[in-house]
Design a protein around this nucleic acid. Structure first.
Lengths: 202, 202
DNA sequence: GTCTATACGCCGATAGAC
DNA sequence: GTCTATCGGCGTATAGAC
């Protein structure tokens, strides 16, 4: 971990409090990477949004790559938090429909910038691949969780259905983004919700 | 048009033959943009692949943006050529299944670099948007053509089905790429083929 | 720990010889 | 039309004062 430790872990270690510049930098990185893409984003952009002097960034992250890793880790943490909240819902079908509902709610941002994680993963996969596997692992974690829900619904083909659902989300995000039309997200979201209903109540 | 004229049009005008450096530059741009992404790609990269001296690039394209436009136009031309070939097939269902089959055939490259056009469109949408609408228009042209096929199949919801099919392709490309697993493309391609069969022979 | 000033390299673009 | 040499700007990263 080192640079990509979560805030919780570092707080437990008792260092780097005071304003939480590190946290602000990571939040800014996630946001600006989403809006501008990784390659177009300069460290100055991130520093400005985080309200941290440019040169000071290097105290927290030795290179731009470390900031990218931290951003990926933040997405991983966000996914864990999301699925944690969804687990509180009574049944797997409701959880999946809530997941889809959350995607649709973000349709305006999706129309502007695409899926926050999908666009990042796509871009990182074209970098001088090092530990970009991390992006793949986050995507895999999402599919794994969805697979678990389909499994609870008693479907033996849970993996295939999970890939189908996540792919549908990524695909409708790409079209929503490329055509700049949030209505695509709404329409396809409704289709997926009906599809879940059809699987849950056959 | 100007810089983004097609080869055919320029040939009719009778200029820029001799080795077709312009064509080589566009081909190289399409390929390198796909493999590295637009932002990471330098004009030197493209010139090297096209076997053209770096400085000479500017005789054919005044700026890097013009090369990007030409690459988008090349995708547009490729799409026209593809649908033209598919039109030769007897029925709309066969045409759609051939379209899907072509996507699956490219699964190895998709696992490495993603969908050649989807990744480009996603990246361009985050640029200082100018005439990036062009990317959206190519995507729209694909959906339009697919819609026409579903229309021939007598489906009143042809548009929605077309969006669903293209989104499915974009989504399975993202997952295939991010997880670096061409098998996803194969499995989802078979699912889509069965889906077309179900629509064509209800 | 925090911040400023600056080194260094790379890339897009231009000037101009041939 | 073709190519070389080079400029100017920007972005990453570092040195070092406070």
């Amino acid at each position: 971990m080192t640079d990509s430790e979560t805030g919780a872990v570092r707080a437990a270690h008792g260092r780097a409090r005071r304003g939480g510049k590190r946290e602000r930098l990571v939040e800014a990185a996630v946001r600006v990477f989403h809006e501008q893409g990784v390659e177009k984003t300069t460290l100055a952009d991130i520093a400005r949004v985080a309200d941290v002097p440019v040169g000071n960034v290097y105290y927290y992250f030795k290179t731009k790559d470390r900031l990218v890793e931290a951003a990926v880790q933040a997405h991983r943490d966000g996914l864990t938090a999301l699925t944690g909240r969804l687990e509180a819902l009574p049944g797997p079908a409701d959880r999946l429909k809530a997941l889809i509902g959350g995607w649709v709610e973000e349709r305006e941002r999706a129309a502007r910038y695409g899926c926050p994680f999908g666009t990042l993963a796509t871009e990182l996969d074209k970098r001088d691949d090092g530990p970009d596997l991390a992006a793949g692992e986050v995507m895999r974690a999402l599919i794994d969780w969805v697979e678990g829900q389909f499994g609870e619904l008693g479907r033996p083909d849970a993996r295939g259905l999970a890939v189908e659902l996540v792919a549908a989300y990524q695909g409708m995000s790409v079209l929503t983004h490329t055509l700049r039309d949030p209505a695509i997200m709404t329409a396809q979201g409704e289709r997926l919700t009906s599809w879940i209903d059809g699987i849950a109540h056959p």
